[in-house]
Amino acid sequence: MSASLEATRAAAGWAAVFGSGVFHGMNPAMGWLFATALGLQRGSRSALFAALPPLALGHAASVFVVTSSALAFGFLANAAHLQLALGLFLIGWGAYHHFYGHRHRLSIGMTAGFAGLALWSAATATLHGAGLMLIPALMPICAGAGAVPGGPFGSAVAATLVHTAVASVTSAAIAFAAYEYVGLGILRRGWINFDWLWSAALIIAGALLLALR
């Protein structure tokens, strides 16, 4: 593969890392809805913003564990076979989430502390397949031109940090706007169905893995 093509694919990978951060941050299931509800319940902006760091930490932990595990398997398995398996798995997980994901909602009380919020966020991100979505983006990044110091795992750390930072900023902006201006009624009046979009994104990510074999 030429250096220019590698660079183009790596740039596309980083764009996907950034874009998925915006997408994850917009999804109410990834935390902004919880932060807003907590702030409204306690009547405090401080409660809203205090909920964001543990939610970000849990999301980052889930994403890194999933992506680094995929990279570790990549070192031990044939790359083409790995892409086939991961592609099919992503498509299957997307279909499962669409038809059955609503049956596995995680509940947490409004008195949860830092650790409780972080664990809830990690579990939610894992069950939704947040880290799985980043695997197609990481593969060209780790291949060469887009890699950072530290090899593939360094790239996984960098991608996790960039993705989580973008997701957190997006979540914070939406949570603050909902708290200060529009309220949670927007979810009933005009918010898009992120469950459908999430399932579609998983299936598209799997299809990309199969197409890039």
Rank of each mutant, 00 (worst) to 15 (best):
G146D: 02
V169Y: 00
G183Y: 04
I186C: 07
I141H: 11
G185D: 09
G190I: 07
Y179I: 03
R189P: 00
G92L: 12
A205K: 06
A145S: 08
A147S: 13
T126V: 13
A173T: 09
H97N: 13
A145R: 04
A211V: 08
P149G: 04
I192P: 12
W120Y: 15
N193Y: 04
H102E: 06
I204T: 12
S168Y: 03
G87S: 05
M110I: 13
G185E: 07
A158H: 07
L208P: 02
T164P: 10
R189N: 03
P136I: 04
A85K: 04
G146L: 01
F153L: 15
F153Q: 14
A137P: 08
S199G: 10
L202Q: 08
R103V: 01
S171M: 15
I135Y: 13
W196N: 07
A112I: 06
H104M: 02
I203F: 06
G129V: 06
G146V: 01
V166E: 01
W93H: 08
A143N: 10
L90M: 13
W93Y: 09
L88R: 06
A112R: 08
A85E: 05
S168H: 01
G185F: 02
R189A: 11
M110C: 08
S121H: 11
L197M: 09
F153A: 12
G150S: 11
S171H: 02
I174P: 05
L127H: 11
R189D: 07
Y181I: 11
A147G: 06
G109Y: 05
A207H: 00
A122E: 08
W93V: 06
V157D: 01
T111A: 15
W198P: 00
G109H: 08
W191Y: 15
W120N: 14
P149F: 08
A130Q: 02
L202M: 14
G87C: 05
C142N: 09
H128T: 09
W93I: 03
W196L: 11
A156W: 06
A123W: 11
L132H: 05
A178G: 10
G116Q: 14
L161E: 00
L209G: 04
F99Q: 09
L208T: 13
A143F: 07
P136R: 04
H102I: 01
A125N: 13
I108E: 11
A159L: 10
L197D: 00
I174Y: 03
W120M: 13
G151A: 12
G87W: 03
G206M: 03
S171L: 07
L209A: 06
L132M: 14
A143K: 07
S171G: 11
G87I: 04
Y179F: 15
L134N: 06
A123K: 15
A211R: 14
E180Q: 12
A167S: 15
F114V: 14
V148R: 01
W196H: 09
R188E: 13
Y179E: 01
A112D: 06
R105E: 14
L138R: 02
G94V: 08
Y96N: 05
P136H: 07
S199L: 00
A207T: 10
A85M: 13
L187Q: 10
G129T: 05
A165Q: 03
A207C: 10
L138I: 10
T170Q: 04
L209P: 03
L86W: 08
A167N: 06
A201K: 00
S107P: 02
A167T: 09
L127A: 13
G150R: 10
H128G: 14
A147Y: 00
I192V: 15
H163C: 09
A200R: 02
Y100V: 12
G183M: 09
A175W: 04
